[in-house]
């Protein structure tokens, strides 16, 4: 590695996680650089959380190379974890304790002197807009507040790398936007973020670069824009027809756009010029019940790469 190129915070080659016969992560390669906001996208069971747990040094890799902050998690777990912040998928707050006590205990885990933990804790509570609740017990707080407290807690050791496993799952839209706003500020401050999500809007909002995972492997990698360009068209035309008439109408549309997808409730035409494509639809005498021309999103990429069928 050359001198001017910074060392990646996360470096993985052929990383594997097995639980008995089940392969959760099946040989992935990754490099996350300092200051990046990096996302793992994928359906449930794709291996995102297992990967995160290996990066968080609480789950030893079954095979392959993994280096976090330049250290080996197999032997240096505690040293690495001292510099990580972790927001787990489910909050692990102490509900009977106060908001502030939750931060103090966590600070203690990292060996912070009481006064330092207290001062930093109050700054962080201010940052996540919970300072006025500092002396309340956690139990009655809303889901969004608990999530913000978990985020504040993960920052108590001033981590070099912040790992967020589905940071906004289960939150209402207002609460999600508050969390996004705080994460965006952290990103601006240069904190390296690594997150998993299955919300495409979350990934588009926060991630500079992301990978789509499916069945333990990386299906695609790039910036949100890259991925849309590579795996989708600029526009998507969504056509709705009366029930049972999708197939008939779809036949009449053969050849339009780059690609057509017939769903139970809609027919999608992927095209670089959505409005132009819609005119061609009308030219063929097809009259849908409703029409929507929109830009492609990550969701289109995601569904194309991981399929539409439910994996349970």
């Amino acid at each position: 590695m050359s001198v001017d190129e910074p060392e990646p915070l996360i470096h993985a080659r052929g990383l594997v996680k097995r639980f008995g016969d089940f392969v959760a992560v099946d040989g992935i390669d990754l490099d996350v650089m300092p200051g990046e906001a990096f996302g793992f996208l994928g359906p449930n069971g794709a291996g995102k959380s297992s990967t995160m747990r290996m990066i968080g040094c609480v789950s030893p890799p079954s095979d392959g190379v993994l280096r976090i902050l330049g250290l080996d998690p197999r032997t240096q777990g505690p040293r690495i974890r001292a510099k990580l912040g972790v927001v787990p998928q489910l909050d692990t707050l102490d509900l009977e304790l106060t908001v502030r006590e939750n931060l103090l205990i966590y600070g203690r885990y990292f060996g912070l002197p009481r006064a330092v933990a207290r001062e930093r804790g109050d700054q962080l509570l201010d940052f996540v807009q919970l300072l006025d609740r500092a002396d309340d017990t956690v139990e009655p707080l809303s889901g969004g507040m608990k999530r913000r407290l978990t985020i504040a807690r993960s920052l108590i050791n001033e981590p070099q790398l912040l790992l967020l496993d589905e940071p906004t799952t289960g939150l209402d839209p207002q609460a999600r936007h508050v969390v996004w706003d705080r994460l965006f500020r952290l990103k601006q401050q240069g904190v390296t973020l690594v997150l998993t999500t299955h919300y495409m809007d979350e990934a588009e909002q926060l991630c500079d670069r992301l990978v789509v995972m499916d069945k333990g492997r990386i299906a695609a990698e790039g910036s949100p824009r890259d991925l849309i360009e590579r795996y989708s068209s600029r526009d998507v035309v969504e056509l709705r027809f009366a029930i049972g008439e999708n197939e008939v109408n779809a036949e009449k549309l053969t050849g339009l756009g780059d690609r057509m997808e017939v769903l139970p409730d809609r027919v999608l035409l992927y095209a670089d010029d959505g409005d132009g494509c819609l005119e061609l639809v009308h030219d063929r005498g097809v009259v849908p019940l409703s029409v929507l021309v929109r830009r492609s999103t990550l969701e289109d990429v995601f569904l194309r790469l991981t399929g539409r069928s439910l994996v349970e």
Partner: peptide
Amino acid sequence: WMGNYHAAAATPLT
């Protein structure tokens, strides 16, 4: 139920 062990396991504690 409380998850405090898991919270602690994410820190330097073994």
